[in-house]
Amino acid sequence: MDILYKFMDNKILLLTTIVVLIVIVLGVLLILKKKNKNYDQMFEEFQMEAVENLSKVEKDLKQEKEQLVNQVKEGYESKISDFKEYVRTVEKISRTTSEVNTHNILTEIKEKLVLEGTIQPFQMMILDNVFFPFKKANGEIGTTKIDHIVLMKTGIYIIDTNEFHGDILYGISKENTKQFSFILDNLFPSEDDETEKTIVFVNKNKDPKELNVISFDDPSKQVMSGVDNLNQLLEKHIQYNSITPILYFHANKLINYSQNKIPYVFDDKQTLYKFFMRQLDGYNDVHSEDELEKMKNIIENVSIN
């Protein structure tokens, strides 16, 4: 019996120990589970806080970006405004007497063509002293000036006015004017025989025994540059552009030796009038009245004036 009681006591003790261990384990598990819940909640709260912080940072960056863009835009607009004002000032003092005279000649030609019934008033538009920006080869923005732009149904005509107080030999070269080759040899010793130059004979001192010979850079460079820059502007808006360059000289006398077909060269109103008549009679219309108005608006809107 003692052994049995002893055995029973040991068994009860073992069971009690097991029960205690089970309770401890359950307690530990409950504590861990509760902690895990706290961890999950903390992690979830951390995620929410992080999202809120990121949203706030993103919003702040967006506001800073908008402020920076506005500052750059305001600075750019201010510079453009100052530049336009500068160009307006330059424009006012850049109109020469010869340019005004050429404008009057073009206006008279237009009036004559309208009176003859050759064109309607809106079929010949004259724009004067046009400044507009263009992109240089290096990416910088430059400005170009075109003295006169004439928009007609037969095409676009750029006219550059040149004024010389003397007698002009235009497009002269050592090859095409051998009688003057000695002059060119002295003025341009290193030039090729085919290179065309412009020289002007001027009597500065009003002495019949004296004659000054002055050389000038190629007058056609300016008008041909205007063709390229205007074409660069219009090709984005008009499918077909026919731009014709013209040089108009105000001088005592002009002799044209140039072998180049363009630019066309004139020095009197009647010859220029006949040129426009040939254009209207001999060429098909390339621009509608709507296109003429559209080109006029494009040029005026982009023009810096």
Rank of each mutant, 00 (worst) to 15 (best):
K84A: 03
L254A: 05
T143E: 11
F188G: 02
D268K: 14
K135V: 09
N70C: 07
F276P: 04
K206I: 13
F201W: 02
V114Q: 06
I156G: 01
E74R: 10
D193T: 10
E108G: 05
S55T: 12
Y240K: 10
M277I: 15
P245T: 00
S288C: 00
E52A: 13
K296S: 10
A251L: 05
P208F: 11
N38R: 14
L169P: 00
Q47L: 10
R278V: 06
E45L: 09
V150S: 06
G282R: 05
N297T: 05
K174G: 04
N212D: 15
I105S: 06
K136R: 14
D218H: 09
E91I: 04
K112F: 01
I109A: 05
V69P: 00
E196T: 04
K73G: 02
D285M: 10
N176W: 05
H165Q: 12
N129V: 03
F122G: 11
D218C: 04
N203T: 08
K294M: 11
N297K: 12
K261G: 03
V20F: 14
Y157P: 07
L32K: 12
M224D: 07
I238M: 01
S81P: 05
I159W: 01
L233V: 02
K197H: 15
R88E: 14
V286P: 06
K204I: 06
D218Q: 07
Y39N: 06
K296R: 12
T107W: 05
P245L: 00
F164T: 02
K37S: 07
E91S: 15
H250N: 08
M8E: 15
K294F: 08
Q41P: 03
K35C: 00
V265I: 07
K209G: 15
S181G: 01
E44N: 11
H250A: 05
T198Y: 07
E85K: 13
D160S: 15
K197Y: 13
E77V: 03
E116S: 07
T144D: 06
A137C: 03
K236D: 13
K110Y: 03
K11Y: 15
F164Q: 09
S94P: 06
D193I: 10
E293I: 09
T195V: 06
D290F: 06
Y264L: 08
I298M: 03
T144Y: 03
V90S: 12
L21K: 09
L30Y: 12
E140K: 14
I149N: 02
L15F: 12
K209P: 09
G75S: 12
H103L: 13
I31V: 06
L234D: 03
I255F: 10
K236H: 13
G282L: 10
L254P: 01
L29E: 09
N301E: 13
F122C: 10
R95S: 13
D147P: 01
L280A: 02
N129C: 05
S98V: 02
E64Y: 13
I119E: 07
E194V: 11
K11Q: 15
K294N: 09
K274Y: 14
N305W: 13
N162D: 03
M125P: 02
T177W: 07
N162A: 02
L106E: 04
K253Y: 12
L13S: 13
E66V: 04
N70R: 14
M125A: 11
I18P: 00
V227I: 06
Q259T: 10
I243G: 01
N284M: 10
L21N: 09
R95P: 04
I156W: 00
Q41H: 13
